[in-house]
Design a protein around this nucleic acid. Sequence first.
DNA 1: CCGCGCGGTGGGAGCGCTCCCATAGCCTAA
DNA 2: TTAGGCTATGGGAGCGCTCCCACCGCGCGG
Lengths: 334, 334
Amino acid sequence: MSTIADVAARAGVSKATASRALSGGGYVSAPTREKVRAAASELSYVAHSSATSLATGRSLSVGVIMPALDRWFFAELLAGIQAGLLASGQDLVLYGIRERTAERAQLFEEVLPRRRLDGIIAVGIQPSARELERLIRVESPLVSIGAYSEGTSAVSIDDAGAARIATEHLIDLGHRDIAFLGGTADAATHAFGDERRLAGYRQAMMAAGLAAFVRHADGEPTMPGGYEAAVRMLGDRQSRPTALVAVCDEAAIGAVVGARRLGLSVPAELSIVGIDDHEHAEMFALTTVRQQPRAQGLAAVEVLRRRMDAPDAAPERQVLPSELVVRASTAAPR
Amino acid sequence: MSTIADVAARAGVSKATASRALSGGGYVSAPTREKVRAAASELSYVAHSSATSLATGRSLSVGVIMPALDRWFFAELLAGIQAGLLASGQDLVLYGIRERTAERAQLFEEVLPRRRLDGIIAVGIQPSARELERLIRVESPLVSIGAYSEGTSAVSIDDAGAARIATEHLIDLGHRDIAFLGGTADAATHAFGDERRLAGYRQAMMAAGLAAFVRHADGEPTMPGGYEAAVRMLGDRQSRPTALVAVCDEAAIGAVVGARRLGLSVPAELSIVGIDDHEHAEMFALTTVRQQPRAQGLAAVEVLRRRMDAPDAAPERQVLPSELVVRASTAAPR
DNA sequence: CCGCGCGGTGGGAGCGCTCCCATAGCCTAA
DNA sequence: TTAGGCTATGGGAGCGCTCCCACCGCGCGG
């Protein structure tokens, strides 16, 4: 591989001039710039990022901490972040992290500081004070997605609000016996705003004077989780609700499948509303409250960039809007 | 942030000794090593990766090129790669790449060479000769997953074989009118061994003397894609096959849902077999041919590590086994 | 005519690390 | 006794880049 010294020599200028010609800053005459560019391209010169990074102090890369990759929300989010970073020329360094504390400590104590990352996007993770302190030491601005921390910048939707919208839609249709599906109390499943959604459902029920009907079926926020929870809850003809608010679309779709399996017709006998607007929602004609993880990823990159430019600005909190998408999984009760 | 000079000063030794004490190589007495370690930990010293990388020539990171993130196979693969790299202390730099050639050229010409990555894992991408040449220049060993290139190391399953296994299972059950579902000819959907699977189905049909029944319904390798293709193909009572081989489980599940929608009972009236053993296969009682993307990701990391140690060794080709998993979506035709 | 500002260029220090090489003490074998 | 090897340490060059600063020539205003 050729270095900038080779390029400079070939163009007949100094290293300093070559550097200026290629990476922008300072005075370079147009002909000189052209000469250097030509030389660089003839040698197929590409600057060594470690050298650049060492000299400038910026690493041109952003760390992304993800608790999972195999769920729609996270995959979409990652795609959004990826697209945003691509546009700004930053590389994406991916750190998977199960809630295993040893790994997590290692990540914050060593791995992240080592890289001197230009920024960090933490998904669904509440960094502790000590962890934040480590990051501040290396001056990596942080933006979290979906976490509701006080002192740090964050992007999310209003989870409680989304669940309220979903619940109110059912109430408006005339339902009273509305149950909440999914949203396990188990933190190990990286409850991603799940409690907030449950809380939003409760609020809407209370506000409508339906406190007596409040109940929920635990389950993983996945399709099989929703399926099982639905089958469990709908099994008894007597006690079964007329409508379900699911913690997310995957669970909702599981519930749709489960209801069919039980011979219940959706929406005639059971209304189901989800939260997400998952790519499969259309196929199952699912009424849902849309959130756009890709947009959240892009927004996080935007916020991060602003923080990189102005590290001392006050933390920025961005709440993206939620919108009801009515399809054919909800109807008035008979 | 403190540097190794600070650590050395605090421990009362030279930079050289401090470096040796912390990163292994060379002679250091036990007490000195302890002193240095203590100093490092007191200063919460973490080596600057760019400096290390510049000095050693190794970047401690591996690039991963992914055509998509929102499909089960890719997400699982990425999780496997991630786990493998975590174990070997390498960072994962993620590059998403749609088949837009401008971006792709940029990636191979500039982005990857700039990083001086220790290795590259390319998923479902056939690097061109010129692209490989660029990588060889920067001495990044490459392992591809799912691509069937000649000169490079690769990990994959035997796609044709998997489809043959699926088809033969149906033939063994007594089916004759077996169609193939999905596997669009459209390269834009990153046909991931799809043609090979179609070919495997054909081979099995031919071998069983069922050439007359060979046919397939185009469709995206997704759940909605499989749903649509199935509805299209199963619409006509007269011409409909008694069994389907789906290009992947997502399509197969879509077909299961579509069949139910049409009032066809699976497996009594229609047998369906997929390829993947998707996490939802269990829920839909789907008979399928298992492939394990996580294992493929881990295997790719393994192969890559070997290539990093011995860059001049002959390219290594690893084909992971496929195995039939019989559930309840297949049965003898009536 | 001189001084000054400004466009343009080069020299070289320095980013933080590793690793080669020199040095030094000490123990063992001839 | 002394050469030689072996452990332990330090000095400092060098990885490839950027950027500060010095320098230079030229045009222009006083």
